[in-house]
Design a binder for these strands. Structure first.
Length: 281
DNA sequence: ACACAAAGCTTCGAATTATC
DNA sequence: GATAATTCGAAGCTTTGTGT
C-alpha cells in the first residue's frame, strides 16, 4: 500500500475537542441561563452529535438511499422526489417489498444477498436519523417486506448461485510475505519501502485497521523501549480510538500495551498474550 | 430431565477494497 | 466520486454439548 496519494475524504481525522462545552457549573447558575440555553439549542446539540457520526456510515446511508430513490422513480414517475418519511406504514412496507424483490444493479445484474440486506439497514438508519418512529427491522407493520427480503435472499442463493463471496480475500501465506521482502517491496532500502514495511508490522502486531489507525497515529504514540535484560521493543503507548475502542463507558479496553519485540529471525509471543484474559460480562 | 457452558448464528455499525 | 461487495468486532440470541 502506498501512502503517497491521499484523497481529500481521507483527511477527516483527527477531531478537535470543543472546550466550550466544559461549562463552569457556577457560571451556569449565577446568570446567563438564557444565554446558556440559547447557545446549547437543540440545533447545536444535534450538530454536536452528528459531527461524531462516522463518515463512512453516513456515506453508505446516502448511497443506499439513492438506490431506493432510483428504484422508486423507475417504477413510477409520481414517486420522483418522494419523501418516504411521510408515507404510512403499510405503503412503505409495500414499496420496500417491491424494492427488495426487484432491485437490480445499475448495469442490470443481480445484487449479492448481503448487499440487499445492507440496503434495509441503511433505510432504517435514514428513518431513525430523521426521527421517524418506524422500525422496519422489528415492527409488525413491516413483516411483509422482511419476508420478501428473506425469500429474495434464498432465491439469489438457490437459483442464481449468489452469496458465495466471489471476491472474498484470503490471508497472505508465509511464502508470499517472504517474497515481498526478497523482491525489496518490504525492507529498509528507502523511505517509501521503510514506511510500507512499518505499516505492515504495525498492522500485523498491533492489529491496526488498514487505513484508519495508520492515519490517526501521531509522533510519540509508539516508543522504542528496552527491558533491562530483554530485547528492544516498540510499545504502543497512545491509542487514538477505533471502531471498537472509542471511549464508550464500559466499553472494551486493552488490558496491556501492545508491543513489538525485536527477535532477529525467531518470533516470540509477548508474555502478556500467553496469560488467560478474564473478561467480565 | 435439568442446568449451565460453549459454540454458533445473526444483527448492527463501521471500515475497507475494487471497480468503473 | 459513486457504487458494489466484503470484512471486522461486538453484542444478542439460539442451539448444541456435557455433567449430574
Amino acid at each position: 500500500m502506498s501512502n503517497e496519494e491521499h484523497s481529500e475524504s481521507e483527511f477527516y481525522y483527527p477531531e478537535v475537542e470543543n472546550e466550550e462545552y466544559e461549562t463552569n457549573f457556577y457560571q451556569f447558575h449565577d446568570d446567563n441561563v438564557n444565554e446558556y440555553v440559547q447557545r446549547n439549542s437543540q440545533e447545536e446539540i444535534d450538530i454536536f452529535i452528528s459531527e461524531k457520526k462516522s463518515v463512512n456510515t453516513v456515506k453508505k446511508t446516502t448511497t443506499d438511499m439513492n438506490a431506493f430513490d432510483r428504484y422508486l422513480a423507475e417504477i413510477n414517475k409520481q414517486y420522483l422526489n418522494l419523501n418516504i418519511l411521510y408515507l404510512p406504514a403499510q405503503e412503505l412496507d409495500h414499496l420496500l417489498s417491491k424494492f427488495f424483490k426487484d432491485i437490480r444493479k445499475l448495469n442490470g445484474e443481480k445484487y449479492e444477498p448481503g448487499t440487499i440486506s445492507s440496503f434495509q439497514r441503511s433505510i432504517q438508519r435514514f428513518l431513525s436519523d430523521n426521527k421517524s418512529q418506524f422500525n422496519i427491522l422489528r415492527d409488525k407493520e413491516f413483516e411483509m417486506s422482511r419476508q420478501v427480503l428473506a425469500a429474495k435472499r434464498k432465491i439469489l442463493v438457490n437459483k442464481a448461485g449468489k452469496g458465495n463471496k466471489p471476491n472474498a480475500t484470503r490471508s497472505l501465506t508465509q511464502e508470499e510475505e517472504d517474497k515481498l521482502f526478497e523482491c525489496g517491496l518490504f525492507g529498509m532500502s528507502g523511505p517509501e519501502v521503510l514506511q510500507r514495511t512499518m505499516w505492515w508490522f504495525l498492522a500485523l502486531h498491533f492489529g491496526f485497521r488498514a487505513r484508519d489507525e495508520s492515519r490517526k497515529l501521531c509522533w510519540g504514540d509508539i516508543q522504542l523501549q528496552r527491558n533491562t535484560d530483554g530485547p528492544e521493543m516498540l510499545v504502543w503507548l497512545c491509542e487514538r480510538g477505533t471502531k471498537t475502542r472509542n471511549g464508550q463507558e464500559n466499553g472494551h479496553q486493552r488490558s496491556f500495551q501492545p508491543k513489538i519485540y525485536a527477535t532477529g529471525s525467531e518470533s516470540h509471543r509477548p508474555v502478556e498474550m500467553s496469560k488467560a484474559i478474564v473478561q467480565s460480562k
